[in-house]
Amino acid sequence: MNVVIRKAGLYTMKIGIPRALLYYKYKHLWEFFFDELDIEYIVSPETNNEIVRKGTTYAIDESCLSSKIYLGHVEWLINKCDYILVPRISDYGSGGTVCTKFQAIYDVVSNTFRDRNIKLLYYNIDPKAADFEMIAFLKMGKFLGKSKSRSLYAYLIAKQMQKCAQLKEIDEQKQRLSENKTKILLIAHRYNICDKYIGEPIITFLRELGTVPILGDIASKREALAKSIEISETLPWTFNKELVGSIPLYKDKVDGIILMSAFPCGPDSLVNDIVIRRVKDIPILSLMLDEHEGSAGIQTRLESFVDIIRLKKGDFNEKT
């Protein structure tokens, strides 16, 4: 288990952060923000079978696997901290909107665990109501009893750290792109591909096959958003735009694309079809993952996909 606990002197209040959904996107922003404010926090462990099982019990059957896992993480945090961080995002203004799951998650959590007496720490990003990210964080700082200037300072530092982390990621990916091996672009939401239960087995297996996984989510967001128009004009969801936009950015440098979604992801159900219909000159594999999936089925499909790519490239013996 890899549980992060940061101690910080006098403050006894402890925040719980579920390691799911937006955590993977805002990890640095949240952690550095709380660090700067000297607030103790605890991040739930990497997703394990128990968390998936709990999440599946609490979630409505038809919810997507990612949100089931989220509820599992929230459940794990109950009674281990004072407040659980559950932010809500309405949309990103001109940058696009989000899956309604992110608009609803605060109320889903509070209604699902109503009888467990949980307290939620939240912020709301809604450009239409002038709730921008910075204002949302200042409000959160106020709720935590911190002065405005201190919260602002913490937010700016955290934001800077997040940017640095992103640049570093992109740099590392650049190096991977220059490797002389079969490279596969993974188009998957970060909360899926980075999850120990959903995505990590796939990345590990691709590495075992001697290929280099390239993450579509690691790319300059601004460039990716702009590039997404090349593939789809009316795509409403920001996260999907960023992913789709990474295809034109990386397509010429990779040998194949895997579209990986959690069952039954709403946005992906349409976007994957658009990608398959419009991106023609590169092999594409579409993978759908749910909580009943055995690893053997997935591994067979990955293996044959990599074989096809190598056959196409003409060097079938390139195995490490």
Partner: peptide, 16 residues
């Protein structure tokens, strides 16, 4: 309809 995310999310509220 199956998989309608906004309506799925209302179900915990309706249960309450």
């Amino acid at each position: 309809s199956f998989g309608c995310t906004p309506e799925i999310d209302t179900i915990p509220v309706l249960q309450n």
